[in-house]
Design a protein around this nucleic acid. Structure first.
Lengths: 120, 120
DNA sequence: CTGGATCCTCAGGGATACTG
DNA sequence: CAGTATCCCTGAGGATCCAG
């Protein structure tokens, strides 16, 4: 017997592959910073120090690490300009747009959930 | 200037409230176990030991803790039957169904992403 | 300015034993 | 069976310093 989650005629098969896919997605967005970084870049390309200033509480180490992770996931591109002092610019990619449905679903459920739970 | 993420005429405003909502949603699903527990319960109510057996590698402590978290988030209900030895049954709620869109979006993007990144 | 290297702390989570 | 209590360890992440 195959377990399912169903809604209005659509099903999600609850198999290992699905579970893995969901976890892949969650992992590439997990942590306190990745979304904030993508948000910071949503208004245009920015430099390292500029991003660091916009995100409250992030350390250089974390910003560096998270940017690298986002880059290997093709969600951020890194441009190095050969100037002195060095200039490095980060920008979001077209691929970032594919996250739209995910963000929307998460946002909608998050809003619903806060209402449901009744957090202030 | 308000930053946005757009797609086919729809926008997500990238404000603090949205960011918080997204993180709320991610947090209630985060960790290695919550999804597996919901998956285990998607095929029907189960008892503590039964769930533990189905999920490879989970410790009693984690299962207990995660079940409690899911319960306070209204995603799982706990029934205690007054028998000896004690029987406790966990089952998913109707509210769990509201996660459908989220799961679907995450699954779809996870599948796309694995293709894009080219993991085997 | 852009980050890498190092050190350190603290909490998440495993193993085990125990209670009702 | 259904958990709780205790101990312990590891790794995520902050602070700081330094190099290109």
């Amino acid at each position: 017997m195959m377990s399912m989650i169903s809604n209005e005629g659509q099903d999600i098969k609850c198999d290992a592959l699905t579970l893995r896919a969901i976890r892949d997605a969650m992992e590439t967005l997990s942590g306190n910073w990745k979304l904030q970084i993508l948000l910071a870049l949503s208004s245009g390309p920015k430099r390292f120090r500029q991003i660091a200033k916009e995100i409250d509480g992030i350390s250089d180490k974390m910003l560096s690490k998270e940017l690298k992770a986002l880059e290997t996931n093709l969600l951020v591109t890194r441009f190095v300009y050969d100037t002195f002092p060095p200039t490095v610019e980060y920008k979001k990619t077209n691929y970032t747009e594919t996250l739209f449905e995910v963000m929307l679903a998460l946002r909608n459920w998050g809003l619903l959930h806060r209402q449901t739970i009744g957090k202030k």
